[in-house]
Amino acid sequence: MLVQAFAFYLFAGILVLSALMVITARNPVHSVLFLILGFFNSSGLFVLLGAEFIGMIMVIVYVGAVAVLFLFVVMMLDIDFANLRQGAMQYVPVGIIIGGILLFELVALYTSWHFAPDIAGNLDVPDSGFAEVTNTEALGLVLYTKYVAAFQLAGLILFVAMVGAIVLTHRVRPGVRRQKVSVQQARSPDDVLEIVKVAPKTGV
């Protein structure tokens, strides 16, 4: 138990610190690196909870794919940061107002409003027999049976987003000569080679 508690405070502490560093670091690349550290530690927290599948997927998806592209983009941007920061202080009042409104709303929410009080009766979690299987199996058992429609819908939305991103960024540039592998493979020596017997001192 002691090890678990130690691990929890370690992960949680680093997570909070790195989250803080994400917004305070001067260099945006450092911010993204701290964000990755944060992802990694939150994945550690999932593993501590016994949700090892979600913990690993968290690392694979967020650290391995999303943050790589994020870092990629931030590194490619060539921004003069000193210039960017000059007028930053004038936005502070607006930030404080928005933050204050959000805080007020959250306080109001959690003190007075009970979200869907009858939800416990509506949730139908088939928890019988889930104690024996690993949580990967447990997830698969409900995801592909009970929630298959929602799962497929999520996939469809992601697919549409992907197609949309490609359509928006794809441009056809004129005058670009691309390699056509099928054309290259279809070439035969008969079409492109001509063997000429040249008599001496005559040329072709």
Binding site: V29, L33, I36, E52, F53, M56, I57, V59, I60, V63, G64, A65, V68, L71, F72, M75, T134, N135, T136
Partner: peptide, 25 residues
């Protein structure tokens, strides 16, 4: 001997890119 060994390996190998990208930057 963890339940999600394959996913662990995949997660670790997908992080290998950071060493390279950090070095380059």
């Amino acid at each position: 001997n963890i339940n999600v060994g394959v996913l662990y390996l995949f997660a670790i190998s997908s992080m290998g890119v950071y060493g390279v990208i950090m070095a380059g930057w």
